[in-house]
């Protein structure tokens, strides 16, 4: 996708991440309804499964992309003073990246402790 079509890139990313998020939410809600973890051992053991861990990491990656595109659209539509917009966009970006790094650490440590 070329530099001239930056809107198209965001549009495509929003839809691809949306589809993964939709499928993951149905899976995770199903898991918690039909097979809820009843102890720390069951919960951390489940997350130590590489498929579960990677699916959750992909989920958070999709959340961060989706949230960034969505919040950016909202801020561009409603916040017009340029300094306020840039400040809010920066804070959003930093907290999204921070949340992503924290989740990577959490899921990595969860796998490392059980091992």
């Amino acid at each position: 996708m070329s530099r001239q079509a930056t809107g198209l890139r965001a549009w495509v990313l929003q839809r691809i991440s949306a589809i993964y998020l939709g499928i993951y939410f149905i899976y995770i809600i199903g898991h918690f309804v039909f097979d809820p973890p009843d102890s720390y051992q069951a919960w951390s053991g489940w997350l130590a499964d590489p498929f579960v861990a990677v699916a959750m990491l992909l989920f958070f990656a999709a959340v961060l992309i989706h949230a960034w595109v969505g919040v950016r659209d909202v801020l561009i539509d409603y916040v017009h003073p340029i300094m306020a917009r840039v400040t809010l966009l920066t804070l959003t970006g930093l907290s999204l990246i921070g949340s992503g790094l924290w989740v990577m650490r959490t899921i990595y440590l969860a796998g490392a402790t059980v091992r």
């Binding site: 720390y40 919960w43 951390s44 997350l47 949340s99 924290w102 959490t106 969860a110």
Partner: peptide, 13 residues
């Protein structure tokens, strides 16, 4: 809700 979710996930593990 993202920061709270991440915090609770971390706490629970």
């Amino acid at each position: 809700t993202i920061p709270f979710t991440v915090y609770l996930l971390d706490l629970s593990l």
